[in-house]
Design a protein around this nucleic acid. Structure first.
Lengths: 182, 182
DNA sequence: CATTAATTTCAAAAATCCCTGAAAGTACGG
DNA sequence: CCGTACTTTCAGGGATTTTTGAAATTAATG
């Protein structure tokens, strides 16, 4: 899948090897195991470091650098997604913002402006959503995902509870009122 | 951004043109406007149709097919994401499932198995989450996104309310109890 | 059913991307 | 400061992808 995540096939193979390897590997190990040239591995590792996807360690009496991936697959996913957000999404939003500043005169302009605005709103909202969600712990994220579409029901429940609390405050005992407000 | 969404630069340009165009365009229009060969446009349109991203119409006394994108940018996004899910994510999950069936004997195998399982769990959960969320309307989706990280608070509120309801049922008036259960 | 307008296919050319080996660079130990 | 062990850079070549024009195909019209 790597090619669709912004990294080339070779770099993907290197990362996959490091991900499944029981022990950290140095560049020569990787070149040997994957039958890549040493320089290819070097470039691949450099790119992966650019994505902040690698951890490395040194050993006493050994100059070589040993690489491994983070243990937590959620962390990997988050790092990758955040890096893509910064590299691709933010610049796209900048360009869209510039487009939106252009003067609107003709009917075509109106249509163009509407489309750009819709695209900007979608990307901008997704972006903010991701920044927010990224802060959550792996457990909270998992819980949130398991909610899935049920989150919608929860949303409706929230609205019902809020309107209920607004309409019928005097009926509620003090403890319930506090809980609802919370 | 098209290249990271699984479509080539040219196809992306064609789609962008159709997205911003005030009127539907035929293949010749597109070829002319973008300076692509007619056959290139034909292939691009075919690919976009394969992604189910196009609408088209015919006109009386005109044999040519006129193309446009859906009006709703959320619909475009959803279609694209769903198609990618089917083409890329599902096959990946199949391969991972097969890997997980392999016998585990050595220590390396145990590690490999754990890593594959973690990856499978992540992709599988994201996949299910997306399938769920995809069913939501544009408005519900927007509301859900605006919640963002606050959804986590809502989650905790739900848990508090549930435990509260469990502990103090007899204190509540009938109407509140029903609402909480809902 | 022949004509013509429009579209699609496909093999080859063009463009792009990726890998490699040679050479240069870096840093550590003596 | 030199030699050694390791890493990085980069131009050139190879592989892959993309684009094209010519030919084939399809479909509407008189």
């Amino acid at each position: 899948m790597g090619s669709r995540w912004g990294i080339s096939r070779t770099v993907g193979q290197i990362y996959a090897l490091l991900y499944i390897s029981y022990v950290p590997l140095n560049a020569d190990d990787i070149a040997h195991l994957l039958s890549f040239s040493r320089s290819n591995v070097s470039m691949g590792l450099k790119e992966l470091q650019g994505w902040r996807l690698l951890r490395s360690e040194f050993r006493a009496g050994d100059r070589r650098e040993y690489f491994k991936t983070p243990e937590d697959v959620w962390e990997i996913f988050r790092t990758l997604a955040d890096e893509r957000r910064r590299r691709e999404v933010e610049p796209t939003l900048s360009v869209l913002r510039e487009c939106l500043l252009d003067p609107v005169t003709t009917q075509e302009d109106v249509h163009f402006h509407k489309r750009m605005q819709a695209m900007y709103d979608l990307i901008s909202m997704s972006n903010e959503w991701f920044v927010d969600v990224q802060k959550l712990s792996a457990e909270d994220l998992t819980a949130l995902m398991h909610l899935g579409a049920h989150a919608q029901k929860l949303l409706h429940a929230k609205n019902r509870l809020l309107s209920f609390a607004g309409l019928n405050k005097e009926e509620l005992p003090e403890g319930v009122k506090q809980e609802v407000v919370k």
